[in-house]
Amino acid sequence: MTLLSVQHLGKSFGGVAAARDVSFTLQRGEMLAIIGPNGAGKSTVFNMVGGQLRPDRGTVLLDGRNITAASPQMRFRLGVGRTFQVAQTFLSMSVAENVQMALVSRRRESGALWSPARSRCRDEAVTLLERVGMADAADHPCSALAYGDVKRVELAIALAGHPKLLLMDEPTAGMAARERADLMDLTASIADAEGIGVLFTEHDMDVVFGHAERVIVLVRGQTIATGSPEDIRQDPDVRRAYLGDEHALEKPKGMDSA
Rank of each mutant, 00 (worst) to 15 (best):
M1D: 14
L3A: 09
L3T: 06
L4P: 06
S5N: 14
S5E: 15
V6K: 08
H8A: 15
L9E: 02
G10P: 09
G10I: 08
F13V: 14
V16R: 12
A19Y: 02
A19Q: 03
R20H: 13
D21G: 05
F24W: 11
L26S: 10
L26A: 09
R28W: 04
M31W: 03
L32V: 15
A33K: 05
G36K: 04
G36M: 07
N38L: 06
A40N: 07
A40W: 02
G41F: 10
K42V: 06
S43Y: 05
S43M: 03
N47Q: 05
N47R: 12
M48F: 13
P55T: 09
P55N: 10
D56E: 14
G58W: 06
G58C: 06
G58I: 08
L61H: 14
N66E: 15
I67M: 13
I67D: 04
A69K: 13
S71Q: 04
Q73Y: 11
R75Q: 08
F76W: 07
R82K: 09
T83K: 02
Q85H: 06
T89V: 15
F90G: 09
M93A: 12
M93R: 13
E97Y: 04
N98G: 03
M101K: 02
A102H: 04
R108M: 11
E109I: 01
G111Y: 09
W114C: 08
S115C: 03
A117N: 03
S119Y: 13
C121I: 00
C121S: 14
T127W: 04
R131M: 14
G133P: 12
M134T: 03
D136R: 13
D139A: 12
D139T: 10
H140D: 10
S143F: 00
S143I: 01
S143V: 02
A144M: 11
A146I: 00
A146S: 14
A146H: 12
V153E: 00
L155K: 10
A156P: 01
A160F: 01
H162F: 08
K164T: 11
L165Q: 08
M168D: 00
M168E: 05
G174L: 02
M175C: 10
M175Q: 02
A177I: 11
E179Y: 05
R180T: 15
D182F: 05
M184A: 06
S189I: 00
A193V: 02
A193G: 04
D204P: 01
D204R: 04
D204T: 06
D204G: 05
M205Y: 07
M205W: 01
D206T: 13
V207S: 09
V208W: 03
A212D: 03
E213G: 14
V215F: 02
V215Y: 02
G221Y: 09
T223I: 15
I224W: 01
A225K: 06
G227K: 11
S228Y: 11
I232F: 03
D235S: 11
V238Q: 07
V238R: 08
V238P: 13
R239M: 12
R240G: 07
A241M: 11
A241L: 10
Y242S: 07
Y242A: 07
L243I: 13
D245N: 15
D245F: 00
E246W: 03
H247V: 04
E250T: 07
K251P: 11
K253Y: 09
G254W: 07
G254P: 11
G254H: 11
